[in-house]
């Protein structure tokens, strides 16, 4: 077999690119007036955060969860119900939801850490469905399929804004938070442990990596961040129901976004959201919801079979080619 050296893109270059993209996103309001595009932009940011949250346990640790909508839903419902019933602002509710989901994620982590491959997937799927069934049927708390309407009371102090751009900045702030945490984990001790556990659990254990602790911390962090996204989503849409928060399809799409973009990398899920969400929206508008999902299904099959490292791997390849091109130019010039 050929000996392959890893050719990382330098951290400095990655940081500069990320900063440039961030500045662009911050300035975007200067260029765009169309409400439809702003709305789509906020949706992309929300999905980018959600996929990034999934990626912490799904990508780094390799625990392919098909139940993450449960955590998203816990976040959305916790902040909304606290606001509706007790008048507590979502700015506080978002943290309560994160803590609740974090505990739930830790619990799920504790009971499933031993399961491998499809068994883990099925357990998370069952967990997600249990939460969904509770959501649909505990009408006294969630009002079931009727859903909850967030009344526009108070304004900014309650995470409610009249200007759509405010949600853009809110979602952007959330994305910076999730990506920041994800990047910190990737480069931390925990990040090394998670990848080691994903690559070979026995070897990792023999080197002193504690399985339960690492996986549970990852699961809890991932769940808590997904819940934060749920709270922001609820404040943005101002109406939540089981179908839009805890449904199985939603769990599948969270994983899909991360996988298409490139799981196990910090920026892959963000790229995934930037590709999948607009594509889905355009298709839905032009040819209908069914056709959009046909494309999702095809995309998922093609990616996992032909390019399991996702779109980010393609970008990497392009960057490296470009760099080599510049280097060879430089060499001939000199």
């Amino acid at each position: 077999m050929k000996i392959v050296d890893s050719t990382p893109i330098s951290p400095a270059a990655a940081r500069i690119t990320a900063a440039a993209v961030l500045v662009l996103l911050l300035l975007l309001p200067l260029f765009i007036r169309n409400i439809y595009w702003i709305d789509l932009g906020v949706t992309v940011l929300i999905w980018a955060s959600l996929a990034t949250a999934w990626n912490i346990s799904g990508g780094f640790a390799g625990g392919l969860s098909l139940g993450h909508a449960a955590f998203f839903g816990v976040g959305a419902y916790t902040s909304t119900l606290l606001f509706l019933r007790l008048g507590i602002t979502p700015w506080i509710g978002i943290f309560v939801g994160a803590v609740l989901a974090g505990l739930l994620g830790a619990l799920l982590g504790v009971i499933t850490f031993r399961l491998k491959g499809p068994f883990f997937v099925l357990a998370t799927l069952a967990f997600g469905i249990v939460i969904h069934i509770i959501n649909v049927n505990w009408r006294g708390l969630t009002r079931g399929a009727a859903g909850l309407l967030l009344p526009f009371r108070g304004g900014p102090q309650n995470m409610l804004f009249l200007n759509l751009w405010a949600y853009w900045y809110l979602a952007l702030g959330l994305l910076v938070l999730t990506v920041g945490i994800s990047a910190a984990i990737e480069r931390s001790r925990l990040g090394y442990y998670l990848v080691a556990l994903r690559e070979d659990e026995d070897a990792a254990r023999s080197l002193g990596v504690r399985v339960v602790r690492s996986k549970v911390v990852a699961a809890a962090t991932s769940a808590a961040l997904a819940a934060c996204v749920g709270s922001v989503y609820a404040a943005f849409i101002q109406y939540i129901d089981p179908d839009s928060t805890t449904q199985f399809e939603l769990s599948v799409q969270i994983a899909l976004v991360a996988i298409v973009g490139g799981m196990g990398t910090t920026f892959g899920p963000v790229l995934g959201a930037a590709i999948v969400i607009p594509l889905g929206e355009i298709l839905r508008a032009r040819v209908g919801g069914g056709a959009a999902l046909v494309v999702y299904g095809l995309l998922l099959m093609v990616i996992v079979l032909a390019a399991p490292n996702g779109a980010i791997a393609g970008v990497r390849l392009l960057v490296l080619r470009f760099r080599r091109l510049i280097q060879s130019r430089g060499a001939t010039d000199a």
Binding site: L64, V252, L256, I259, Y296, L299, M301, V304, L305, P308
Partner: peptide
């Protein structure tokens, strides 16, 4: 695992829709 699980899941989404 990601390929094994999501290839048939993708197929399911495809056929359904």
């Amino acid at each position: 695992d990601v390929t094994v699980v999501f290839a048939t899941l993708g197929l399911s989404i495809f056929l359904q829709n």
